[in-house]
Write a protein that binds this DNA or RNA. Structure first.
Lengths: 346, 346
DNA sequence: TTGTATGCGTTATCAC
DNA sequence: GTGATAACGCATACAA
């Protein structure tokens, strides 16, 4: 390991024959220092290539200008976009982002949170793993005085700040659109129901059916079809029925919808003519499949910014932290070819 | 802002009527502590919910268990995969990742590096922005004793550890394959030539043509066509020629190749029959376009792991840091439909 | 306005 | 083995 001596405020003080405290003040742009000495100090700081030591500064101030992020997977479009949005705002505020991935494992998630607590981050931003069973690790963070913002996949039993999509509305809009296109037997591929986002999407599906007086058929509701492979498997089963569905709403993701599309095409179904398909999340690829897939955009980057804004504008300065605000972002239905039975767009 | 008092080693020491230094030793699993007291200390540490303060520990030890990452964009498949790989290994080693994005701006990149230097990170992992003009900011980091690993887009003029793809070979393999399929007029969409990765890919293209005795036609080499839009624009121009190319190698990215595919389809060209298309990077979508796009996989996640391994296994422990190793990862040609003129695979 | 002194929480270096 | 003490670099209350 290389050893390297970096210049400190004492080095500057010594060189100028002044007190280190004056140097500190000047560098922090305090008003209690004359313009002349301030200028001199800044100049020599530049000369000596001085860099503030955040470890010392943070230790002294008792706070760490860092926000920890825990997501299931960094390399998933939705999450990397949220992180991109987050980074933009935190960077402007002079904060750093420490990023961890739980890989959808609860155990790993607990370890990540543990690490972030040890790092004394100011805030933890988290989207819980699919294995979520309890929130002890998050309560622990709160007990240590760390702010907590849950987003997208939130634990409803835990009262914290939350930034979510209106999943019920997103699903409702999607299914309403499907119905309006003349589809009647609409299957639902649902995600693990321990996660509220998937429960809400199912609720939106059911509300849309009810409101448009379309009967709910239990045999068309497939549990746990939330990956491309599971979506494909579910589709093989659905389309082999004597009376198959005429539309499939892959409420979990566009990946699942892609699995549906591939199997349907293989099995000779015409999309959208004999089978309508709708996904969720507006992954980049959903626009370029053949046909393009109707989906729901979650404004992921905007979500990241909203999380950061929530922290910097409300939480950080808050004196009363008993009111936990929930920010809900309205998703947007992206109507594409895969559901356009009536008006075929080229 | 909430104030919260966290338990320190002094709290534990006071409670047990022993010295704080003993507590520290016990928590660091030092051999100079009796098993009995160690056990007692660990037990009460647990009871009092003690968490080590890394700010203090790092300050005292003069090192920060953190690696800084600077990439053009977090939400780009290649980079988010590299980060995912990096995170996996750094996490295991008890290190954290601080992530910044330059948004392809040199100025912003300089600021990012500045921030990471201030954070006293142990190592900076960077892929330079397209605007790269000089490496003063990186030299500055080195001067502060921070290790530096460049990856993918590296500044060749700066001697550091590097983890790269063999871009020349990747392009050579791609173009050789295109030629083997019977294409003869092969256009090249090149990226900004100030970045070595794009120069190398061009070199691979030229070497393949030369080796297979295919003439190089200057009018088929299009500068700066590295986004989807620029790829589309270049394609409109190329396919409007009296004697258009029969294949296009979008050496910069699959995004560019996608632009090519869309325009070619619009203009009535049959892919791969009348026009072969090859991209670069193996973005997720390249597999699901119609037809699927032949491309070059860069093993992005593996690259992230290789970077982290390089740091933990070689750099961190190195006494002699004059030898800068370069790790080169061999890319893999992914042959898909868009270039399969001879053997059409379904 | 400037200087002095103290402490943030930890670890390393001494003594004992 | 254990305890006392200093120091990491900085920010701040207080004195001057």
């Amino acid at each position: 390991m290389k050893i390297h001596k970096r210049t400190t405020i004492h080095d500057i003080a010594r060189k100028l024959n002044i007190a280190a405290s004056s140097v500190s003040r000047a560098l922090n742009n305090s008003s209690k220092v004359s313009a002349a000495t301030k200028e001199l100090i800044l100049k020599t700081a530049e000369e000596l290539n001085y860099k503030q030591n955040y470890m010392a500064s943070n230790l002294r101030k008792g706070q760490n200008q860092t926000i920890g992020v825990v997501v299931p997977r960094i390399n998933q479009n939705f999450f990397s976009n949220v992180i991109a949005g987050l980074e933009e705002v935190t960077y402007k505020n002079g904060y750093n982002l420490v990023i961890c991935q739980s890989n959808e494992s609860h155990e790993r998630e607990v370890q990540c949170v543990e690490t972030l607590i040890n790092q004394h981050v100011s805030c933890i931003v988290i989207s819980i793993s699919v294995e979520h069973t309890n929130s002890e690790h998050l309560k622990n963070a709160l007990a240590q005085g760390i702010e907590l913002i849950q987003f997208d996949r939130v634990a409803p039993e835990l009262e914290t700040y939350k930034v979510i999509n209106d999943n019920e509305q997103g699903a409702f809009d999607a299914v309403s659109h499907i119905i309006s296109q003349g589809y009647h037997r609409i299957a639902l591929l649902e995600g693990p129901q321990n996660l509220s986002i998937f429960r809400q999407r199912k609720a939106g599906y059911l509300r849309a059916l009810e409101q448009h007086r379309v009967p709910v058929l239990e045999e068309l509701i497939i549990k746990n079809a939330w990956t491309k492979e599971l979506g494909a498997k579910a589709t093989r089963k659905l389309l082999s029925m004597q009376n198959p569905p005429d539309a499939i709403f892959a409420s979990t993701s566009d990946f699942s919808a892609l699995g549906v599309l591939e199997v349907a095409t293989q099995m000779g179904f015409k999309v959208p003519e004999t089978l309508g398909i709708c996904g969720y999340s507006n992954e980049a690829f959903s626009e370029i499949t053949t046909p393009s897939i109707t989906t729901v955009d979650q404004y992921s980057k905007k979500m990241g910014k909203a999380i950061a804004d929530l922290y910097f504008q409300e939480i950080k300065e808050a004196t009363n932290s008993n009111i936990y605000k929930t920010v809900s972002i309205k998703p947007k239905l992206m109507i594409r070819s895969s559901t356009q039975k009536k008006l075929k767009v080229i």
